[in-house]
Design a protein around this nucleic acid. Structure first.
Lengths: 194, 194, 194, 194
DNA sequence: TATGAATGAGGATTCATTCAT
DNA sequence: TATGAATGAATCCTCATTCAT
């Protein structure tokens, strides 16, 4: 049977890599560590990922697929957007940024060292897509009247920055009060008082 | 015998370390690289910093001193704060976060890997100091009436997250339009419409 | 149960090994390479040759059987040897050394590293057999008068050295002029002017 | 003091590499082996040779310099060449090919695997130089009358092949009778009966 | 103080061999 | 018989640290 992209072992190794890269960065994470964490032997890591680099690249970029789906699923239904829905979206965004801790940490690790990693391009285009999505929301919101007059671009960039910063700066994602606070502050970026 | 903390060479090495650590992280930066960047010989690095670890630690924590001064200089005059002054402070904060690129990058590198670095404590207490400072501002602002009703803690945490995220996510600090946008968005976190 | 020595797959693997060992040496040649070159799967190589070592050993020694036949077939008819026949034999030898490129290359690879390989003994005895054969020819030739006075041993060793050196040093076995030149020079080793 | 090309340690490592590469080939020789043989630590090898490849390259090509001098020193005095001198030259060549065992072995290792090593070009041009030198000798010898009518090119190539083959095939360079035999056979390649 | 050669522990990667299917 | 995933020993190379000059 052909070595499946979705083999159980591949997934174990991937998750081990994601965990360790997000905790200790690229260089400090060793293949030996990954193998142990994944419960496979040293050489087996290389059966599924040709190099440490490729494993890292996978850990950075593969989660983007799911992000796209979850974050921008309502893109098609933008025209019917309501304030209520926007609040829900923001809730989802904040929750996701806190829940997908490892996935976002490795991304932040990469964008924090733009001179070093080539993954930057893929991440840049993802960021552009995301901010564009927010801008579209702002435009709709202003047209529909549930958002105050705003500069959509500023809101887009500010909102992304805010989500990233929240995830980077605060680790305790079990703290409900904290995440609720961030949700309130996120609303303010759209000009919505709480 | 105590080495001069303020030697020209020590400063060169420090700046070289700051540059390289901020660009390539801890492990990828070698002492040889630092020496070359600083224009000193290999061994000389060890004359001023006993280990690579200590150089890194210095690069992360020493800038905090200056940050304290610059960011919180008006702490003593909080009682007489005006909206005008708050706007100036926010301006300064955004500008500083973009100008002190290297200093903040290494800090973000450390807080992005909390399981790995012991510098965390010093950074945590700095962050607490900063958010407390913001909270004080919010309380004053509400009391004086130039800020709307807010949860001071939420604003403090949100504002710090926002600054960090802006610095992390956006590299182009020459872009005036971008930084102005961030200043506007920062005001919104305080409940101030633009 | 005994595996067929003459299976088609065994021959494919053998030829692949011969090709790669002769081109890249023992260590640089991997079983994976051999399998690909032979058009069989990785594990199949081990079905026909227990270890890499055994495959190599086979590539070095099995061709010797054929060599014996081709090179020394007229051994039994030495008593009736003529100059004309000697020239034919030399022609055959030179041609064979250039045609059996791979087989001789692996042999040269082994004798070039006598401290490393155990195949040396088999090769030594083959070389002794060969030089003895040449010595016999010289003795006959002198007795019959078509060869000048010579030291048979010197001619034997010199002739073998010459054939080996020609094969080692010159790759272009399509060059007729070159091989003709070697044939002329080979004759001179027997004391025959051209 | 700048790391000299002629440091004692560099020479020790070089000689160790030459010995081991000539005995066991490139891949079977490990840097650890070289270090032990040279009496230095593992890392020190890399202080003098950036990579294993470069050490090997040095072992193959650096001896060529001395070869050029020793082998072709009389090139300038060719016009006055005598038979007596030619015999001396051949003596020197044979002696050198047997004495410089290691240097020539690594060269033979390389030319035996032309698809694998890039050193081939340097070696090719050295070989061309050498055969051209022999051809010049033959032309002079024929003109002066102490050599019979010959094809200079054939003699050049045949003579080089012969020397290489002698070195490759026979290990016992202490055997005077053997080397004398080779000297006689070498003369025959020039058309000189013994 | 300044220098850089020497050291060897540590890490990525390769690959022969095994073995379950 | 044929296959190829799993294993881990072995190897090249890097680099922080030491230390003699």
């Amino acid at each position: 049977m052909a070595r499946a992209r979705s083999s159980k072992k591949r997934e174990d190794i991937f998750q081990a890599g994601l965990k360790l890269f997000s905790q200790h960065g690229y260089s400090k994470t060793t293949i030996k560590d990954v193998a142990e964490e994944a419960g496979v032997s040293f050489g087996t890591v290389f059966t599924y990922f040709e190099t440490k680099d490729q494993l890292f690249h996978a850990c950075v970029t593969e989660p983007l697929v799911e992000f796209r789906e979850h974050i921008m699923e309502i893109r098609n239904r933008l025209e019917t957007l309501t304030l209520q829905q926007l609040k829900q979206i923001i809730d989802q965004h904040v929750d996701m940024f806190f829940e997908k801790e490892r996935e976002i940490r490795v991304i932040q690790y990469v964008i924090g060292q733009p001179e070093r990693f080539q993954e930057m391009e893929e991440l840049d285009s993802f960021a552009n897509e995301f901010t564009q999505f927010i801008q579209d929301i702002v435009v709709i919101g202003m047209k529909k009247g549930f958002l105050p007059n705003s500069n959509p671009e500023e809101v887009g960039h500010g909102y992304l920055a805010f989500l990233m910063g929240a995830r980077l700066t605060y680790t305790d994602h079990k703290n409900v009060q904290l995440t609720n606070g961030f949700k309130n502050q996120a609303l303010r970026l759209f000009g919505i008082g709480v």
